[in-house]
Simulated assay, not measured.
Amino acid sequence: MSRLARQASEDDDGGLSRDALSLYSRMLRGELTQRRDEPGLEELLDVGLVVPNIFEDDLYLIADPFQVWRYQSNREREVLAASLRRLRSIETLFSQLPVRIAQGDSGVSYLASKDEANGEIIKALSKASRSIRTAHPVPRPHSAMQKSLPRDIDLLERGLKLATIYGEEARGREVESEWAREVTRRGAEVRTLQGRFRRIVLIDESLAIIGDHTRTQPAKAGWKVEHDGLIAFISELYEDQWKRAEPWLGGDEQAPSAGVTTPMTRKILIELARGRKLAAIAHELGVSTRTLTNHLTPLYERLGLEPGDQFGLGYWYATFDERRASAAG
């Protein structure tokens, strides 16, 4: 390493010593230097401002300072370029690795895979003492449901409260239907929710497993949360999803309706009665406006309203006793 590089690594200002400057000034005035132990000479040689005379031993000459400056500058640029290349290669390397994200004592831990998340859930369930609340927007594999049923029955027999939310389409799948029938018979509460909602596993109001929403890691990654403030927020989010969901006892039947409405139309009518537009409701439920219109068409006909009279539907629902059915869920 050159003296300039050593100085840079030691946070030096890169300047010459007083001895080196004094010697260089004398050599500029024509003084010959023959002693290798001359104070400051080694420094000037290292920088390149002074070079040995190839024709006479123990005699040193001043080099062209412009050439020295250009050489040293180019060399340092090459060093910097090499360092930048190494830095980019390091960033590329670690961006490709499924590394654990360190969180220290923040109460949040990164889970790099589905297996790791399931391991944390099983470990927490073995110690649970009060309640288990889960939300599953994506269908669970048949094998997972088979393993889950005896475990969930055991939790209920231990006296824990169990609440679960599935997507509305679960009502048409036998695996989820059988699970729902068995656990609700033993006191669990199961509901289904139309549209998009968040995957949450909340245990004893002290630990939560949620999906990874940073989208920088594999889709099956997630987070283990034990921070009190974040647990309170996740619990509130779960409660909001629970209130919007419809009770389900298992089987492929739809939730009971008080009369002319269905679970889906009641969701729409509640929002229409609040003055919201159909497009905004569709976006919130994760479906198209056309899908909502298809749900409402039978109501227009049955109530004698003009197709598309959203105000009329909202007014009817706001003043009709059937609205109590949705509030009761």
Rank of each mutant, 00 (worst) to 15 (best):
M1P: 07
S2C: 00
L4W: 08
A5R: 12
S9Q: 15
S9Y: 12
E10C: 03
D11W: 13
D11C: 12
D13R: 02
G14Q: 01
G15E: 13
R18P: 00
A20G: 04
L21A: 07
Y24Q: 08
L28T: 15
D37F: 02
E38G: 04
L44R: 09
L45H: 10
V47M: 09
N53K: 06
I54P: 14
F55C: 06
E56N: 09
D57I: 07
D57M: 10
D58Q: 14
L59W: 11
Y60H: 08
A63Y: 05
A63I: 04
P65V: 05
W69D: 10
R75G: 03
A82Y: 10
R85P: 04
R86T: 15
E91W: 02
F94C: 04
Q96A: 12
Q96P: 06
V99H: 07
V99I: 12
A102D: 15
Q103E: 14
G104S: 10
G107V: 02
S109G: 07
Y110D: 02
E116S: 12
G119K: 00
E120N: 08
I121P: 07
I121A: 11
I122Y: 13
K123M: 03
K127V: 14
S131L: 11
A135G: 11
V138G: 11
P139S: 10
R140W: 10
H142Y: 15
Q146I: 10
K147W: 10
P150T: 06
D154A: 12
L155T: 07
L156R: 04
A163T: 03
T164R: 15
I165K: 01
I165Y: 11
Y166T: 07
E169W: 07
A170N: 03
R171W: 01
R173Q: 11
R181V: 09
V183H: 08
G187R: 09
E189S: 13
V190F: 02
R191S: 05
L193A: 09
R196D: 13
R198F: 12
R199Y: 03
R199G: 10
I203Q: 11
I203P: 00
D204G: 11
D204I: 13
L207W: 05
A208H: 07
I210V: 15
I210T: 09
G211D: 04
R215Q: 11
R215G: 10
T216M: 08
T216E: 14
T216H: 07
Q217N: 12
Q217Y: 13
P218Q: 02
A219I: 13
K220G: 03
A221T: 11
W223G: 04
A232D: 11
F233L: 13
I234T: 10
L237P: 01
E239F: 00
D240N: 05
W242V: 10
K243S: 04
A245M: 06
E246A: 15
W248E: 05
G250T: 03
G251K: 06
D252N: 10
Q254R: 15
P256A: 05
S257K: 03
T265I: 04
I268N: 01
I268A: 01
I268K: 00
L269Q: 11
L269W: 02
I281D: 01
I281L: 00
L285P: 05
S288H: 02
S288V: 00
S288F: 00
S288P: 00
T289C: 09
L292H: 02
L292T: 11
N294V: 08
L296A: 06
L296Y: 01
P307I: 01
Q310V: 05
L313W: 01
Y315G: 02
Y317G: 06
T319R: 12
F320W: 14
D321K: 09
D321A: 14
S326Y: 14
A327E: 15
A328F: 08
